Computed example of a mutant assay.
Amino acid sequence: MNLTRVSPEGLLLGAGLDHLLGDPRRGHPVAGFGRAASWVERRVYKDSRARGVVFVGIVVGGALGVGVVLDRVGKGAVSRAVVTGVVTWSVVGGTSLGREGLFMASALERGDLEAARGRLSHLCARDPKGLESAELARATVESVAENTSDAAVAPLFWGAVAGVPGLVVYRAVNTLDAMVGYRNARYERFGWAAAKLDDVANWIPARVTGLLTVACSGSADAWRVLRRDGANHPSPNAGRCEAAFAGALGVRLGGANSYGGEVERRPEMGDGRAPEVRDVRRAVRLSKRVGLAAAGTAALVAWRLR
């Protein structure tokens, strides 16, 4: 018997709510978690890895406790499905990711570079200053590819194998990485544990994302580029998603990116042309298909494990 009481119906319900409604507009639980994590950070911060481990232990441990309590709320199959559905809706962000991508597409299509630069921070931490249309398009396609795993595939994967606690803990880990997992003066040591834990949590989902991208695109190039270039990225996970998208879309991703005034040169992935503005909408459509496939796959896995 599965002790986490995974509900495949609940996973489908939550994915459906995300597809129809996007993120909750008010009182988003992830925003509340972020505020609580910031409160803990202010009290335990020290420029050391050990303090970062303590920080992650407190915050992720608390999230696990909340997940276990929520998991025990539903005693019957219907109530369990409802609880799982609401939690899944709260932690899956595929529709919001698509909306951000479409905003960028619209801004770039009408030539409003200032609007696109101002919105890029919703997708990635890349410095937008001075980026022209082509670089903004590449940044968006890369971010949509990578975040398809973080926003959709990974939470559904953990929900399928670990139920409500898996959903809650994954989103906690991923949120902490977004908050402190940076290589800068403040977080290089303190954020080390959060970044490494996020790498572990996303290792399998990123590779599942790559495979689902191949399946949803029906592209032999997606499989070829995934196998050849997926490991070239400095991240152990992002490259799997970006390489598969590059092959599926027939574009070439990678190159020079600026973060906090420092330029990183990343290996190129794919054999096609540089991304263009029109590729942003193509990436969003592919991401949506991958997210829907992930929901069906997660429900099937949960049903088999039940």
Rank of each mutant, 00 (worst) to 15 (best):
V54Q: 08
G210D: 08
E262P: 04
V164D: 03
A145C: 11
A243D: 03
D47M: 12
T175W: 03
V173N: 04
A116C: 07
R278A: 14
G32V: 08
S149H: 01
P234A: 03
A274F: 10
T140D: 02
A238K: 02
V200Y: 13
L70W: 05
V141N: 04
A201G: 00
A81I: 14
T148G: 07
G34I: 11
G32M: 10
A151R: 05
R186I: 14
R42W: 12
V68A: 14
L212G: 01
R285F: 12
A246Q: 04
D221A: 15
V164F: 05
G27V: 15
C124W: 00
G52W: 03
D150Q: 02
G218F: 05
V301L: 14
V153M: 02
A243N: 07
P155F: 08
N257A: 15
G93I: 07
A151N: 01
V208M: 13
V92W: 00
Y45C: 06
A139F: 07
R266H: 06
V87S: 08
E132H: 14
A298C: 09
T84R: 02
R49F: 09
W39Q: 10
A63P: 09
L167I: 09
L21K: 04
P29D: 06
G210E: 00
A105Q: 08
K196P: 09
A302I: 06
E100V: 06
V208K: 01
V73M: 14
V83T: 07
E41W: 04
R126P: 03
E41G: 05
E146T: 11
R278Y: 09
V169F: 00
G230H: 04
R240V: 05
P267K: 02
T88L: 03
C216I: 08
E132T: 07
L21T: 14
D112F: 12
C124L: 08
R227G: 03
F190M: 11
F245V: 07
G85K: 05
A248Y: 00
H19F: 15
V91L: 13
G93L: 07
N184F: 15
A151L: 07
G14L: 06
V40H: 12
L20C: 13
L136S: 13
A243R: 06
E142W: 01
G27K: 14
H28G: 07
A139H: 11
G10S: 12
R228L: 10
A134L: 15
G130S: 13
A107W: 00
L249S: 02
R51S: 15
R138M: 06
G14C: 09
P236T: 12
L300N: 09
E268P: 01
E268G: 02
S287M: 06
A116M: 03
S96V: 08
A36W: 15
A63M: 14
A152D: 03
R285H: 12
E262I: 14
F245S: 00
D18I: 10
G93Y: 05
V208F: 09
V225K: 01
R273E: 15
